[in-house]
Design a protein around this nucleic acid. Structure first.
Length: 817
DNA sequence: AGCACGCCGACT
DNA sequence: GTCGGCGTGCTC
């Protein structure tokens, strides 16, 4: 056996642009790629991730690794090139990429814990009561005798540090170096094991009644596999089993052991979906192309364009079967909110135990457990939101991105990645088949399908040949009202709702804006009440009695005064889902009306509860935001009303047309998925707009052609690429001048980047967000190499200029807001 | 990020 | 003259 290579390439969990090299552990223990280690970095200890081992000695002096944090890798070595690519492409420190990819609670670092000594306690309480009163952390310390590492970290940075060091020298307190931060471990549960040999008659005779009862129960519960009976299950049957258990253990009849358990993330049992007896011809055709590609074990990409209700899920399931049969694993990405819905239940029904779930709704511990099941190879199918693209599967042979057009695949803070794009990357690096599915593909994916980069698969018909719903456009300009302003509900929509109610069928009413009113307008000075942190108008939420900022969550009492002139005359303007709900209640007092949006679904349970109520036909009219469009099947919905289709068209955003089409097509697809045909009423001010007209006709190709023409004319993606540089800071002037400096620097470099243009600097569309001022610079051009090169030079310039202003880089931005 | 090193004002 | 404030720059 050869000695392990002495040098390790480590990505440290700190914002360093490069990896660092360390010498192997002094004690001879070996660290493998994918393992976490504790490494010294400028006088402290931090978590690092081993990326590679090497024989080559670098020319600088090396420090050795301080400790191993894991016995086994936390991610497979195969992910290393993926992490490297992500870090480079998205201009993000590789250690932070990996830290973010791993489940939370796995990052250790050195810290300090403060304890107060007896002498210190006397001193402060006798001599310095005033000081304790005035200093919250000292009060905390004297009360609890110690301070956590997290608290000390904050103090250490401030000027308290010197004070603490002085007091420590005087013996009033002690400072202890500790390793802290890793808060997650394996959860165990105690299990009862029955003794191998039968107990002697004397022993049995000596048992108390409670002990005999316990033993009898255990005999009954004994499983053939003999892996122990969870104590929890026993005490559920017999509350008083605790004491007898201890006695039985003392007598040698049983033993008690701790077994690792996985916390169950599935909450409640999802519905069971049986395998369909037969596939449609279109499904057969799709699989006839997919299965051979999967068996090739080489990279290939498919776009499955299937109208809503056409049976994409069954194609996913059978492709997954093919992949599992090859001994490879399957990764399924879904938009966050669509989790716990149809798709998940289908995979659980078909594959059961081998499915792991990764999404943000899991508690930290649950997420850790799911991760462990994947690393260990126990789970071979992962279903998760965008971050599941980092799932530690060793050899995914199929990567599915459901609803690939969905904006939720783009992460809009910290590491700003596109989950769908990374699915394609991971597939190409690992020789996997990538399957993108959508009823309304993104422009870019459809273009790749047409150009042959992906193979296009289509499911043009709904299963059982159910017709697509009939869509009626209502021109709001043409609706007469007393006030001259268009009403919320046109006569056509009202009439249709009434008719649907009287038939005992369900309706969906859709508006992509929550809250009650758009904003509160001051009748005296004409200004809208704004968020003090974000410079956008606050939205009235009547039920909560609050004005709420939809960007930072700031909330204030709705009985407020005008921030400009302090007038009390505030009037609600505009409308949201809450207002729609109220109006509907007025119009149809007997109807059962429910609302599905961010306000009514604080968590997954609320969300599922409302969905179930709709499913059980306990709801006649469901009002909602785009949340209602995501992956749900409502068989009894026969009417969909879209209150205001133009809501997304006025945004300062090149994707407005695409979003509007997708949204309308998706909402429209909710109607008539059961046996009754569906009807859709779309209210709009722009009935001739191409996005709206094409959605009415279910005509994706027509929308695609028109939108591509517009993008080409304006030089927007996919005809160019973008990198957005967003600067933010506390001082408005500082941010603005930094933006100007960087833009000027960039422009001076343009002779070397001839195909690239710089737009800006300009205030970001949200010029103030969470109390910070924001400016942006947009790099635009067809040459990706140039864009990245220029971006790197600007980042260097930015780091020279200092940290008072923060720069974040958004590669392939989708949402300029 | 956060620690070390280094360079200027108010104190023994 | 020192202590201690904060501004660059580096971290294997």
């Amino acid at each position: 056996m050869s000695a392990s290579p002495p040098y390790l390439e480590v990505a440290v969990a700190a914002p360093l642009p490069q990896t660092l090299t360390y010498a192997a552990l002094r004690d001879g223990r070996v660290a493998k790629p994918g393992q976490r280690v504790l490494v010294p970095l400028s006088g402290r200890l931090l978590t690092g991730y081993v990326l590679a081992l090497s024989e080559e000695k670098p020319e600088f002096r090396l420090k050795p690794i301080a400790d191993l944090l894991d016995d086994f890798p936390v991610f497979p070595e195969k992910l290393v090139p993926f992490f490297r690519w992500v870090a480079r492409y998205y201009h993000y420190p590789i250690g932070e990429v990996i830290r973010g990819a791993l489940p939370g609670g796995l990052t250790s670092q050195s810290g300090r814990r403060l304890k107060i000594t007896e002498a210190g306690l006397h001193y402060f309480q006798r001599e310095q009561p005033q000081l304790i009163q005035d200093t919250p952390w000292l009060a905390n310390l004297t009360a609890n005798k110690k301070l956590s590492a997290a608290t000390v970290r904050k103090l250490w940075r401030g000027k308290e540090r010197r004070l603490i060091e002085q007091w420590a020298e005087q013996g009033l307190l002690t400072v202890e170096q500790i390793i802290s931060g890793a808060s997650i471990g394996q959860k165990t549960e105690s299990c009862v094991l029955l003794a191998q040999e039968a107990a002697s008659p004397e022993t049995l005779a000596s048992l108390k009644p409670s002990e005999a009862k316990t033993l009898a129960l255990l005999e009954e519960m004994r499983t053939p596999a003999a892996q122990g009976i969870p104590r929890r299950e026993l005490t559920a049957l017999y509350r008083g089993a605790g004491k007898p258990l201890a006695a039985l253990a003392a007598k040698g009849l049983i033993s008690l052991v701790e077994r690792p358990v996985y916390r169950d993330p599935f909450g409640e049992t999802p519905p069971f979906f049986p395998r369909p007896a037969q596939l449609t011809v279109d499904q057969e055709n799709a699989l006839a192309q997919l299965n051979p590609a999967i068996r090739q074990k080489k990279y290939s990409a498919f776009l499955l364009h299937g109208v809503t209700g056409s049976g994409k899920t069954e194609v996913y399931l059978q492709a997954a079967e093919t992949t599992l049969a090859l001994g490879r694993s399957v990764l399924v990405l879904v938009p966050e909110i669509a989790l716990a819905t149809q798709l998940e239940a289908h995979f659980l029904s078909r594959f059961g135990e081998t499915v792991a779930l990764l999404h943000s709704g899991l508690a930290r511990g649950e997420r850790f457990d799911q991760w462990q099941r994947v690393v260990s190879g126990e789970a071979r199918i992962v279903i998760g939101a965008r971050s599941a693209i980092f799932a530690p599967l060793g050899d995914p042979g199929l990567i599915i991105v459901d609803e690939e057009h969905d904006g939720a695949y783009k992460q809009e803070d910290s590491l700003r990645y596109q989950g769908r794009d990374l699915a394609l990357l991971r597939g190409s690096q690992g020789g996997a088949t990538v399957l993108l599915g959508s009823a309304t593909p993104s422009l870019i994916s459809y273009q790749h399908a047409l150009s042959g980069k992906y193979t296009l698969l289509t499911l043009p018909a709904r299963i059982e040949n159910r017709p697509l719903p009939q869509v009626e456009l209502v021109d709001l300009q043409a609706v007469n009202t007393v006030s001259g302003r268009p009403p919320l509900f046109s006569p056509q929509l009202k009439q249709a709702l009434r008719a649907t109610l009287s038939r005992g069928e369900q309706s969906l009413v859709f508006l992509n804006r929550r809250g009650f009113a758009g904003c509160m307008l001051c009748s005296d000075c004409g200004q809208a009440v704004q968020c003090p942190h974000c410079r956008i108008t606050l939205t009235l939420h009547k039920g909560r009695g609050e004005l709420v900022c939809h960007y930072c969550g700031f909330a204030t009492n709705s009985r407020t005064v005008c921030t400009n002139c302090r007038s009390l005359n505030l009037a609600p303007i505009g409308f949201g889902t809450e207002r729609i709900e109220e109006e509907l209640t007025g119009m149809f007092p007997k109807a059962r009306i429910a609302r599905l949006d961010h306000d009514t679904t604080r968590n997954r349970q609320d969300f599922l509860r409302i969905l179930r109520a709709v499913h059980e036909r306990e709801v006649d009219i469901l009002v909602g935001t785009q949340m209602i469009t995501k992956g749900h099947h409502f068989p009894h919905v026969t009417l969909v009303g879209i209150v205001w289709a133009d809501a997304g068209l006025g945004m300062p955003d090149y994707k407005g047309g695409e979003r509007t089409f997708q949204l309308l097509a998706q909402v429209t697809g909710r109607a008539g998925r059961g046996e009754q045909p569906g009807k859709v009423i779309v209210q709009t001010h722009q009935p001739t707009h191409y996005s709206i007209a094409a959605a009415r006709d279910h005509d994706y190709p027509r929308f695609f052609a028109k939108e591509m023409g517009l993008r080409k004319a304006l030089g927007y993606p996919p005809f160019s690429r973008l990198i957005n540089l967003v600067l933010d800071g506390e001082q408005e002037e500082g941010v603005q001048s930094r933006a100007s400096l960087l833009a000027a620097k960039g422009k001076s470099l343009l002779p070397r980047y001839r195909r690239t243009a710089i737009l800006g600097p300009a205030p970001a569309p949200l010029a103030r967000l969470r109390g910070r001022f924001r400016w942006q610079i947009l790099l635009k051009g067809p040459d990706l190499e140039e864009l990245h090169g220029l971006c790197l030079e600007l980042e260097q310039e930015q780091s020279r200029l200092g940290a008072a202003v923060n720069l974040s880089v958004d590669v392939d931005p989708e949402n300029m807001l």
